[in-house]
């Protein structure tokens, strides 16, 4: 079983391998068997993302089908010099799931349910190849105040909107937005320091 989580592959102190990136490159060459291997390696991760964000298994099934359709159609746009394969896949899955979530009519389920789901599961420090990066981001999160760190984590993982967050924290939407933007800015400065 390929370890697909987050980065995939093992570094061993040399150049980080990126088997997912290899599979995406092969998919771009219309290699259907590589596409299937890619699904086997990343399907559970991407389905997990869709389930977590959409909180609806059947919609998540539709979403993940669309995600893999886009992976096949857009594989040639993947540029491995710009990032890891799994990062690219995760972006496609999150973007599609969040677009679906935002397109839902008014307020069905969402913020309330999301608030019940703990966003603070084991931190990113447990990763394999991305251990260094993960430690850096964990360190940088530790420099943020806890509310802001939680808001960023909750938004990223569960797809909380500014609307959800402002209700959750009881502050006006624009206040929430500038507060969170300052958090993102601090994070960026810390990561680039």
């Amino acid at each position: 079983m390929p370890t697909a989580a987050g980065g995939g592959g093992v570094a061993d102190g040399v150049l980080p391998e990126d088997p997912i990136a290899e599979l995406i490159a092969a998919t771009a060459r219309a290699d259907r068997s590589a596409f299937r291997t890619l699904y086997d390696a990343a399907g559970a991760k991407l389905f997990g993302i869709c389930v977590r964000i959409l909180k609806d298994r059947s919609e998540a099934e539709d979403a993940v089908q669309e995600v893999f359709t886009r992976v096949w159609l857009n594989a040639r746009r993947f540029d491995r010099t710009r990032g890891r394969g799994m990062t690219w896949l995760i972006a496609i899955a999150r973007n599609h799931a969040i677009d679906r979530l935002r397109a839902r009519p008014a307020r069905t389920a969402g913020a309330e349910e999301a608030a019940e789901i703990p966003d603070r599961q084991p931190g990113p420090e447990a990763s394999a190849v991305a251990a260094g990066e993960a430690r850096r981001i964990a360190d940088c999160f530790a420099t943020l105040d806890e509310g802001r760190a939680d808001a960023i984590r909750g938004a990223y993982l569960s797809g909380l909107s500014y609307d959800d967050l402002s209700r959750r924290h009881g502050v006006p939407l624009n206040t929430m937005r500038s507060w969170l933007r300052r958090g993102l800015q601090s994070l960026k400065e810390c990561l680039e320091a």
């Binding site: 997990g48 993302i49 998540a60 799994m86 990062t87 999150r94 084991p122």
Partner: peptide, 11 residues
């Protein structure tokens, strides 16, 4: 932000 995705559980 990619390291945050480690917290997504496989389903």
């Amino acid at each position: 932000l990619a390291p945050l995705a480690e917290d997504y559980e496989d389903v």
